[in-house]
């Protein structure tokens, strides 16, 4: 079994190498324990990939920091008549003249890291890993409606965090 691709998958989500190694080890342990349930409907590589993503997500959960932001602070707020408060200017084009591509990637990664756990894991599983709604719902043992609501909130929160960098004419 070649761990390179699995380690790369885990590193997408965990910056610290120690954490990534822990998650890799956890992946192999989980796989070992669950191998009897591997039903052959997916390839072994796909199955391991899923276990690895899950190990990374769980590791992240266990490293809960105190500075996690509340989702409510990251959602748009509205006046009573339904208009958005402080809509701000349109987003300009990506500020690639001011921010290096690598920095931009790191910025997005950090924003995702700041999401509350339940929103971050849905964003990762749905948008990045592209699991479908039903699979995520089963995996996390929540309703499909909750998956959709959390995903929409996670995306809006990501948008809010990126907003300052994209406002036209921002420094």
């Amino acid at each position: 079994m070649h761990s390179g691709p699995l380690f790369a998958t885990i590193q997408r989500y965990l910056h610290h190498e120690d954490d990534a190694w822990d998650a890799l080890q956890e992946t192999f342990l989980s796989a070992f324990r669950a191998i009897g349930r591997f039903d052959g409907r997916s390839t072994l590589a796909t199955w391991l990939h899923r276990i690895a993503v899950n190990a990374a997500v769980m590791k992240w959960r266990s490293r809960r920091r105190t500075s996690i932001r509340s989702i409510d602070d990251l959602l748009p707020s509205y006046y009573d008549d339904g208009h958005r408060r402080d809509p701000g200017p349109a987003w300009g084009s990506l500020p690639l003249d001011r921010i290096e591509v690598a920095e931009m990637r790191e910025l997005v990664r950090q924003c995702i890291a700041e999401l509350p756990d339940i929103h971050r894991e849905i964003l990762i599983l749905r948008d990045i890993e592209e699991w479908d709604t039903a699979t995520v719902a089963t995996h996390l043992d929540i309703e499909e409606g909750a998956v959709k609501t959390r995903l929409h909130r996670a995306r809006q929160a990501l948008r809010t965090m990126l907003d300052p960098y994209f406002r036209e004419g921002s420094p």
Binding site: Y13, A90, V108, I112, D127, I128, Q156, L158, R159
Partner: peptide, 29 residues
Amino acid sequence: DCVHYLASYRTAVQLGKSLIMPSNEKVST
């Protein structure tokens, strides 16, 4: 305002989808 919001939402989703890449340099550069 809503046109702008929708556009920025789409961009944020795209960035989330595409920018999480392995941190090792071979791929990421």
